[in-house]
């Protein structure tokens, strides 16, 4: 405690732009949860707003909004999010409602259930990817376009 540095002094803040809408819902939208580096979170980690992970999270992660996993961050948990950008490591199944972006530095081990997926070259991914909309289409493609024959295996039918 003797050698601990002093806390930063409180200084008068600069003028912030005025918030026009003061509804409770509007305020909730801006709530952001940040897990800083060298911080470990264990348990059911849930937030109403955006989540930014720079440290380690284990258990489960849930947000209805955006999840950002920064480079060097580690998530050992099942993830459910509205949308996500992954630049770190994720070990666990991911269920993303809208779009998921895997940046070149990302490492994902687990199944992914997503609507829109963007994978940058260099990203490492091990798992099954499921996208809604393909299950219903899959049957029609099989019945209309492909017919299994004994000689060729698959034959195209126009």
């Amino acid at each position: 405690m003797i050698f601990q540095r002093n806390a930063p002094k409180i200084v008068e803040e600069s003028n912030e732009p005025e918030v026009s809408e003061r509804t409770h819902q509007h305020v909730q939208d801006e709530v952001e949860t940040v897990v800083g580096p060298s911080v470990n979170v264990e348990g059911d980690f849930a937030s109403e707003g955006n989540i930014v992970v720079k440290g380690t999270v284990s258990g489960s992660v849930f947000t209805s909004k955006h999840l950002t996993v920064e480079m060097g961050a580690k998530i050992i948990a099942n993830v459910r999010a509205g949308s996500a950008t992954i630049a770190g490591e994720v070990k666990g199944n991911m269920k993303v409602k809208e779009s998921l972006e895997l940046v070149s530095t990302s490492r994902v081990v687990g199944d992914i259930d997503v609507k829109n997926l963007k994978v940058e070259s260099g990203a490492l991914l091990y798992g099954k990817i499921t996208m809604p909309g393909i299950e219903s289409g899959e049957k029609s493609i099989k019945t209309k376009l492909f017919k299994k024959t004994e000689e060729t295996g698959v034959q195209f039918v126009s």
Partner: peptide
């Protein structure tokens, strides 16, 4: 706001970037 301290050098401590939890 959670600010972890990490050792910096022999004597000092350094504040890490804060974590924010509502």
């Amino acid at each position: 706001f959670i600010r972890p301290l990490t050792k910096s050098g022999w004597w000092g401590y350094k504040y890490e970037e804060p974590s924010i939890f509502p």
